[in-house]
Design a protein around this nucleic acid. Structure first.
Length: 377
RNA sequence: GUGGAUUUAGCUUAGUCGGUUAAAGCGCCAGUUUGUGGCACUGGAGACCAUCGGUUCGAAUCCGAUAUUCCACC
């Protein structure tokens, strides 16, 4: 249940309460696709050191390995990964998009080839809900089609109509599953996903359709898939007024620190992105002063921490020079230390945004940091 | 000492019958990464082709000498 605490312009400070705890929003969700943060970071690191509020796992990946039935037998995704806070599971809809070459979309669902062994997988709204129910996540995402960009108008129109029908099936199936006696999490929540490509009228039309279904939250999907950031911001601005004020809003897969500031400013409450983890694995670090590539030769003798003043476990203990060396040498520790810094950075960025909203100074915070935060240093 | 082989980018190598600006991997220097198909992708710099001489319109390529490293034999 979402509670709006304070508003500044369109930016919202809120609380989202779940059976696994209350999420202070705006919040960033830490991506643990297969039940683990890539880069050798555990749920305990997330909880004890990285200021994480929410973990995100993926339905498709966990369905293939170890299997959602297995996770259920082991007591659900919370017990399995040892993360006791809120967990959102992505529906597998995005994999339809990212595995586009191998897919076959029909009204019932999608057939596509496993990325592990190539075997044919079928997933539709009911399958996705059953898997997510077996995982026992806090929040399940609706099974949608993430449309490619660019896409023809008539294709997008047909697709969002199908996504709407799929959403109704998701809701029906989730209600049935939550009522079963052996359900892992009988209070599992369901978020709907807005689609419509880059067509504002289709975005608005679709949002109006799905808000009628009275879901637990609403996501904007299908953005940051190749369109310009300006286009992305325009779509958010067009859709946001159509989103219920008393429900949490989630911008899927976004984004850079600047994208997050811009998103909050446009009324978004929840974000997730692989960028802090993926970029960290390639020595790309984020700071309030800008982003840096630790592989660059200029850091070889630099005894500063990644970000002076940063209280993350990496910055409190190690120098840029040491991390530079670890990356050059291909040491696993380089990834772990870099991922920890980037996640700490993203999570504490959200802490700072929440604090600024609490004080009614978000706009000042935005103006102070929006330029520097995306600069290349 | 004799015979054979070797020498091309920092490293390991490719280079056809002599024919445009000598190619690749690694390394180096940068850039990219947005609901993750985990060590990725893109670009850049870098070579007097061991040296000297010869043949030829033209030589990394053919010939000679010298040097180099390795192998075998005495």
């Amino acid at each position: 249940m979402y509670k709006l605490i304070k508003q500044e312009g369109r930016a919202r400070r809120g609380e989202f309460s779940t059976v696994h705890g209350t999420i202070q929003t705006p919040a960033f969700m830490n991506v643990a696709t297969a039940g683990a943060i890539k880069g050798a970071v555990s749920a305990l690191d997330l909880k004890e050191q990285l200021h994480a509020r929410v973990q995100l796992c993926n339905t498709y990946h966990l369905h293939l390995r170890p299997g959602d039935e297995t996770v259920k037998k082991l007591g659900g995704i919370h017990k399995f990964t040892r993360w006791d806070g809120p967990i959102l599971t992505d529906s597998g809809g995005f994999q339809v998009f990212s595995l586009a070459k191998l897919r076959n979309i029909k009204e019932e669902g999608v057939t596509f080839a496993s990325h592990i062994d190539g075997r044919k997988i079928f997933m539709g709204p009911e399958e996705s809900m059953r898997i997510q129910s077996n995982l026992g996540s806090t929040i399940a995402m609706a099974f949608d089609e993430c449309i490619e960009n660019p896409a023809e108008y008539h294709y997008v129109k047909n697709s969002i109509e199908r996504t709407t029908r799929w959403l109704m099936r998701c809701k029906t199936e989730m209600q049935r599953l939550n009522a079963l006696p052996d359900t892992v999490n009988p209070h599992q929540l369901l978020f709907g996903i807005n689609q419509g490509g880059t067509y504002e009228d289709l975005r608005i039309e679709h949002m109006r359709r799905i808000r009628e279904m009275d879901l637990d939250g609403y996501a904007i999907g299908g953005l940051a898939v190749g369109e310009s950031t300006e286009t992305m911001y325009q779509i958010i601005e067009a859709v946001e007024p159509e989103m219920p004020k008393n429900k949490i809003r989630y911008l899927m897969g976004v984004g850079t620190p600047a994208n997050i500031l811009e998103g909050v400013r446009r009324g978004v409450d929840l974000f997730d992105c692989v960028m802090p983890t993926r970029n960290a694995r390639h020595a790309h670090l984020f700071t309030m002063q800008g982003r840096m590539n630790l592989m660059n030769a200029k850091y070889a003798l630099d005894e500063n921490p990644i970000e002076p003043g940063c209280q993350c476990p990496t910055c409190r203990n190690f120098t840029r020079a040491y991390l530079h060396h670890l990356f050059k040498a291909g040491e696993m520790l380089a990834m772990r230390l870099a991922v920890m810094h980037n996640l700490y950075f993203y999570n504490t960025l959200m802490d700072k945004i929440c604090a600024a909203l609490d004080e009614g100074k978000f706009e000042d915070f935005y103006k102070e940091h929006i330029e520097a935060i995306s600069r290349r240093i």
